[in-house]
Every structure is written in C-alpha cells, then in structure tokens.
Amino acid sequence: MRCCAICDPVITPTDPRAARPRIDWRRLDGILLLDKPQGMSSNQALQQARRLFRADKAGHTGSLDPLATGLLPICFGEATKIAGGLLGARKAYETVARLGVVTDTDDAEGQVLRERPVPALTIDQIDAALRQLTGHILQKPPVYSALKRGGEPLYAKARRGEPIEVEPRAVEVHAFDLISAADLLDGGEPLLRLHVECGSGTYVRSLVRDLGELLGCGAHVVELRRLWVDPFREPRMWTLQGLEQLRAQAGERVLDACLLPVEIGMASWPEVRVNAAQALRLGRGQGLRGPYPVRGQVAILDERGRGLGLGEVDAEGRLRPVRLFRWAAQTGAAGAQ
C-alpha cells in the first residue's frame, strides 16, 4: 500500500505502465448498481468501474468476497457522502452451502481443515438449525475477514500464520431459509441452497459455518450472490463487460445514463424539505430551528425534491447540516435571488 506520493514508483520508459493512456478524470455524481463478477475483489471492481466512467471520486458501499457475485452499489462524486449510511443497510443473499467440509476461510477458496461424514438429515432438522441462527444472535466473524485489529485487516495477520482470536459480536439475521436440499436428499452432493436477509456486519460465511456445526458435520460456502441492498430492492444491475460494450457502441453519454441519481440512494433516511432561504443557511453551515418532527439523521431535499445532503435533527427538533452536497449552497443562493 502506498503511504504518500513520494513513495510512488518511478516509471521508466521501459516500464509497461508508461504506455498506458492517461485518464482525463471528470466530475461525475451518481450511483452505479454493479453486478460484481466472481474472482474479483470489491476494490478491483470499484477501480475498474471508476476508470470506465472516468470518475474523479468513487467508493463502494460494502465489500463482497472475491468468491461472491451480485449487487455492489458504487457511489461516484457527491454520492460518496451517503455511502457510509448505505453500509448499514439491510441486504439479501442466495448462497450454496457444502456440508461435511470445514475450511479456514469458511468458503471454497480456503484450505480444508477437516472433513466429517454428513448424517442423514430431514427438512425439519435443517429448518430447526436455521431458526437457531435467525434473529438477534452473537456471531463470530471469520478469521479471514477485512475486520481490522491494530489498524491491520485480520486476513493479513491470518496469512502470516499469526494466532487470532475473534470475539463474537451481535448481529441481526432477518431471514435464514432453506430454498432447496434436493441434492442432499436425493443422495447426491451434500449441498443446501439458502436465502439470507441480514443487517450490517453479518457474515454469510459465518452463518453457513455455524449451520454446519449445528447439523453435526461442518459446512462452507461454495456460492454466494448478493441479491439486493436497501433501498435498491429490485436492482437493475450492470456488468463490467456490459458497460464496456455499451461505451464502445454508444459512447460515454449513454454510459452515464446507467447511473441512478443520488436522491434514490437517500430513500432510506427520513425526508426533510427546505426552502431556498433555509438551504442557503444550511449551505453556510448554519442550523435551522424547526421544530422538525423526525429525530436523528435525515435526508435534506429542496422544495423540488433535489437532494442537498444529510442532516441531523436533535432532541429539540433543530436541524443541522452534517454532509451537504457541493450544490447545496448554490441551490439556496439561486433560489433566494
């Protein structure tokens, strides 16, 4: 990891990177619902999408393992200011668990730690185990995870062979349901296809690992796909390959039409509307007395419904700006004229 610009490597004329065309980055605001491919890290997918759109600023809203596919919301420009709020959103997954084998990463990319015979199981037994892992539970995150200790991800310590003890933490699992056990019950591969809906900080790999222990044989994830993330319940996802083809065929302007406006990403927050004079005050960093009926973090919109940013309503009903978009003050100034 580069610590500063001084540490950047010197690129010589013989370095293959010297032949890369320079990217003319541009200001771009919006949200891309990316269908992350298997085998690519979330950051690799983010950087590829950023280069494709030439966006000067980008961030994603919650990592997916390289094994996983599916919805990875990517925020460009001012949309990055709401990315932190989307990290804690409710999410849904479909996963395939392989019974009888435990790995060090709790998925198919890890090293096998042990194998055990899979007992004869019934649907009722599987459903009973799933119910034990539903609701407010304590979950032990995987050792190979992006959680940090001492400023370093746990996976980095695990790869060096350092002993790691991970403490259980409270998570919420809204649904953990069996979709199909046909392979297992028909005497084929011991596979379970499962549906998961969960809150922030929940690891599907850990759910599958713990399910395997409850069933007496161990288990790991062999497939994982994220279906949706609030507020994007029925997402129109774009693949990197599809976006590249679209740009080649129709140009950058059509590519930009694939982005959602930032306001759609603000749908999970309670809404507060302000007039031009109030927007001007907020844009100057000043609060509004209100009183506003909601409490906590809110989405601030102008009278036409354009998003101005995020704010906080205190116990007395006063609204203060938290993270405003760059156009908030301009919107207020233009409306006040």
Rank of each mutant, 00 (worst) to 15 (best):
G70S: 10
Q132T: 11
P168N: 06
C7D: 10
M237Q: 09
I74G: 00
Q47L: 14
R323Q: 14
R320V: 14
Q337P: 06
V171N: 00
Q249C: 08
R289L: 13
A299M: 04
L64Q: 05
M237T: 15
G135C: 09
G290D: 06
S41H: 05
L243F: 07
N43D: 13
A18N: 07
Q337D: 12
G151N: 09
R2V: 13
A250G: 00
G201K: 01
L194K: 04
V196T: 05
L211P: 00
R20Q: 14
G188R: 11
A328N: 05
G30V: 09
T69R: 12
L71F: 11
A175G: 01
K57A: 04
G265M: 10
R131C: 12
V262W: 02
Q249A: 15
G309L: 11
L211Q: 02
A83P: 07
V204K: 09
I164M: 05
E234R: 12
L99F: 09
R90N: 07
T80R: 05
R159P: 00
R22A: 15
E167Y: 04
V102R: 13
E303L: 13
R54C: 13
D65E: 04
R323V: 10
I6P: 04
R236F: 13
L227T: 10
E244F: 07
P119K: 01
D107G: 08
L138R: 13
H174N: 06
T95V: 15
D183R: 08
V166G: 04
E162L: 13
V173D: 02
A175D: 08
S145N: 05
W269N: 03
I74K: 01
T331Q: 10
R51H: 13
K140Q: 15
H220S: 02
G317V: 11
R20P: 02
G287Y: 12
V143G: 06
H174P: 01
A277H: 14
D230Y: 09
A279Q: 05
G30F: 07
G335P: 08
V262C: 07
G150L: 09
G70W: 14
G296N: 04
P321G: 02
S268K: 12
V222S: 13
P153R: 11
R131Q: 14
L280A: 12
R205D: 01
A89F: 01
Y93W: 13
